[in-house]
Amino acid sequence: MKLTFKIWRQESTAVHGRFESYDLEGAGAEFTLLEALDKLNDQLVSTGKEPVAFDSDCREGICGSCGVTVDGQPHGPVANTPSCRQHLRSFPDGSTVVLEPFRSGAFPVVKDLAVDRSGLDRIIEGGGYVSLAAGTAADADAHPVSHDTAEAALDFAACIGCGACVAACPNGSANLFTGAKLMHLSLLPTTAVERGSRADGMVEAMDEEFGPCSVFGECVQVCPAGIPLTAIAGLNKEKLRAVLRGRGK
């Protein structure tokens, strides 16, 4: 099939970017979006041009490295699917596909389609970890956790940190990302010990760089891990709990 890619080219964070158009022929409908970019880059390199920079790693939707905006939609046209699992069969033959980096004030463009998502790391540094020494693996029944609770914690732990929720949000909010981590760690007995200080630290770090949530619900449409909107209520529940019980509880 034949596609025209209109791709955002930007040499570095400091300079302005622009769109450039490239025609790609000979790509199959079974190609993933990133494979199409690989093929395009082969053509660019063979003609002595600079290849298009983009992030990717596992290419099976579990690492959270990839992420481009396709026709204004973070990750691409298929909902809840990362860029690496989007296929060219979504686009009619001969169509024009606009590729941009993830757009958010907190995600400065590093180069072309690659953005700096370290703002999400700074939220995790605010408290999205376990600082107590858990020792060796405990006996299976030492910490009673119901099946439903364990499943719920795992569902929220599924976040791969790709940042699509931020890019999808008209407010540039990271509530879904932060809420998923807070919910995940608050549901299990050992990690719940630091609930209060974690909520305070993560919400403070989040408010420094990201926007407020207005419950547009755009984040849950793009999230490759299927994190539900409940995570946003969970974030506020954890923060309110920390306020009502006092810091560090």
């Binding site: 209109k6 930007q10 964070t13 400091a14 300079v15 302005h16 970017g17 622009r18 769109f19 450039e20 158009s21 490239y22 025609d23 790609l24 053509q43 003609t47 041009k49 980096p101 757009r103 958010s104 004030g105 907190a106 995600f107 400065p108 463009v109 953005v115 700096d116 370290s118 703002g119 408010d207 420094e208 760089e209």
Partner: peptide, 22 residues
């Protein structure tokens, strides 16, 4: 393969703009 250039738009905001509001 053809290359066409379209308009220039401003780049993204830098991460230095952190906020500590009242």
């Amino acid at each position: 393969m053809s290359t066409k250039t379209t308009e220039i738009r401003p780049g993204g905001r830098s991460t230095s703009a952190r906020r500590h509001p009242l």
